[in-house]
Design a protein around this nucleic acid. Structure first.
Lengths: 296, 296
DNA sequence: GGTTGCCATAGAGAACGTTTATGTCAGAAC
DNA sequence: GTTCTGACATAAACGTTCTCTATGGCAACC
């Protein structure tokens, strides 16, 4: 179905008359009667202060003044119509892709994305979760949400969530092996590690303990897992104590399935960053605005 | 006094809103109330199918879609307003200057220019007559009508009147010294020459006689005059026989004050050429059209 | 000479665009 | 914390614009 043209009044009428050399022909094309076209041309001639067409017995011709104005009107209409098409095309792109890691996808994004879809029913959101950064900037995503420090990202990246980490375990675990009033008490427990290839960008148990001034040799009961979902799942099944990122474990803390068992460590320079990929358009901006407006 | 702007409806309103970031401010600039502006923006958003501004509590901002459309509208308005200014500027030049020689001015143009002025009451016509070509192309004239051959003028020059020449004298002169049935009889009469500095571009008696196959020594009674008006005046006062250019002496031939006394010599490559000077505009075109439409 | 088809004008009615009145509300000022 | 300010939104009424049909004029065509 062809798109509906913007109402541009006499501009469309004049352009059609100039192009077709006929008031009747222009009216036929625009769905107007011939006197309506005649009326509009005369009114604009009054505004300009010069004849724009010379009327022949059958048909008409642009005057020199008319040709000058016609070129400008024709060019202007092309630009405005192009812009309208571009706006509409950008509205009809139905899928928004968000690239992120598994942890953020599972614990933060998926629970919330329903609200975005409710606010923007015409938009489908696809979450593209990955282990690393490969594919984050290959142009197929509309936004990337990635963990790292400020210097890891382009200047226009926005901090979505600063890194705030607290040790957590299940309430049952604490009841059985706790209480853990002193950070040093954690060093005697099996700790759950989030493994990665290469140097981790997020806070680790090593760093957490060092901040507390606690020395610990690697205990034999420690567990290493390669996705954060597995880490939380192990904590929930009372296999040890995990690090909990505020923002990701909020629902578990609120529901009581996990409890905090130590002080929070915070690194304001680190966190989840929003990087908008590709050229800005209406939907991408809507997505960014929504992500940035979420309460922390 | 500033010129009156073309009525461009929502285009002006949207451009002002986008530029000022305020519906109230746009209304103030355009002489509209704030609800009128609000109404227009909302209507065009319905037509486009997307929000064009995001409304804040105080003021507004273009959305990404709005920015796309704004650039096109802004550019389009500039072009249309420029064209309107150009059209109006070309209408406000009240004097048309025609550069020509004295002969053409006296015998062809002055008798006819009244008709042009009657057809175009808003235009004053100034005839700038000159002995030579100096000043013809110095930019102060709107048109130049000059005698010469095709190669003497730019490609776009138009032939107004080809050169057709016939010997003429007063009826009284013929009655007294005639008849002149044979071209050779003219060689015994005093001839009236149109003098010029340098080589003449128009047909001369020398050429006319050579075409007839008549040999003639310069007669003692010949007269040389430096304007064509003087030449015709001398012919009318029975001082000799002149060359008469068809187109210039038509009124005298028709009225009987001059009579043709020999065969016509014609040079189709020579004649009066119309050269339009300066850029085309409405009035210059009107002048050219009128000159070219005159019967020969 | 009659027909055709395009442009112009007039009058009436529909649609648009504007105003005034009023409500809402976030930010500024006190 | 309360009050004030000013900008945007909406509703209703009114004025202006735009459109229609009816009709006239007229040059080109048949």
């Amino acid at each position: 179905m062809s798109e509906r043209k913007l109402d541009l009044g006499w501009l469309r009428i004049f352009e059609a008359v100039g192009r077709l050399g006929s008031l009747t022909g222009a009216g036929a094309e625009l769905g107007l009667s011939q006197p309506a076209v005649s009326y509009q041309i005369r009114r604009i001639e009054e505004q300009v202060g010069a004849p724009l067409i010379s009327r022949m017995h059958r048909g008409c011709k642009l005057t020199t003044a008319g040709e000058t104005l016609f070129r400008a009107v024709h060019g202007g209409l092309e630009r405005i119509d192009d812009a309208a098409r571009q706006v509409r095309a950008s509205l009809s792109s139905p899928v928004m892709r968000i690239f992120t890691d598994y942890g953020f996808a599972s614990f933060w994004l998926m629970p919330r994305v329903a609200e975005f879809r409710r606010l923007h029913p015409g938009i489908d959101v696809h979450v593209v979760a990955s282990q690393g950064l490969e594919g984050a900037f290959d142009g197929t995503s509309d936004a990337a949400i990635l963990f790292g420090r400020r210097a890891d990202f382009p200047g226009e990246a926005r901090l979505l969530m600063p890194e705030r980490v607290v040790p957590v375990c299940s309430a049952g675990y604490r009841a059985r092996y706790g209480p853990f009033d002193d950070p040093r008490s954690l060093s005697r427990q099996p700790l759950l590690h989030l493994d990665t290839v290469g140097k981790p960008r997020w806070l680790t148990w090593t760093t957490w303990l060092a901040v507390q001034g606690v020395e610990r040799e690697p205990a034999q009961g420690d567990l290493g897992l390669n996705t954060y979902g597995f880490v939380i799942q192990a904590a929930l099944s009372e296999q040890g104590i995990a690090l909990g990122w505020i923002g990701l474990v909020d629902a578990h803390l609120a529901g009581g399935s996990l409890v905090a068992v130590g002080p929070e460590v915070r690194r304001d320079d680190c966190g989840y960053w929003l990087v908008t990929t590709g050229e800005g358009n209406e939907r991408r901006k809507a997505l960014s605005d929504w992500l940035l407006s979420q309460p922390q």
